[in-house]
Amino acid sequence: MHFSRRSFLSSAATSAALVLVPIPVSALELKPDVAEAIDAILNGREASEAGIELDAPTVAENGAQVPLTIRVNSPMTSDDHIETIHIIATANPEPGIGRFHLTPRVAKAEVFTRIRLAEEQEYLVFAELNDGRILQAAARTAVSIGGCAT
């Protein structure tokens, strides 16, 4: 079997460019501890489902190391920037995954890290602006081997 360099590169680029189809957060049924974690972030505010793009695999081989890129549409100026990005799991033993803190020195609101998913689930991302507005998005990743053995 023969693969040309060009066809290999283009297939690699196709699989790497996977952007998840957004899931409406309002459509999710949330466990009480997850709802509580979200309420603590929202603090009475209503989040809008706009401006966040999540880039992660639809199927992860290893739930202990799931790559996640979060891109938020923001000019990142001192007047208009993202201050905090929260990641919340809906089916881990505990909902908290982590929290980014950004400043206007950050050139664009794009961050990458790896997260743990105990099983196939939706995870939620909330981005807080400096003016108090809040954005939200959700994505779903299936997991071959769960990632919460430690």
């Binding site: 202990a64 908290g96 982590g98 803190h101 990458f112 790896r114 997260i115 998913l117 919460c148």
Partner: peptide
């Protein structure tokens, strides 16, 4: 000397933590 980027780890953060971010 000025904090530009930070992250609070919670239980769902993976082992061998890795970050990519962009600054001016």
């Amino acid at each position: 000397g000025e904090t530009v980027f930070a992250y609070d780890f919670e239980n769902g953060s993976a082992a061998n933590p890795s970050f990519t971010f962009f600054v001016r």
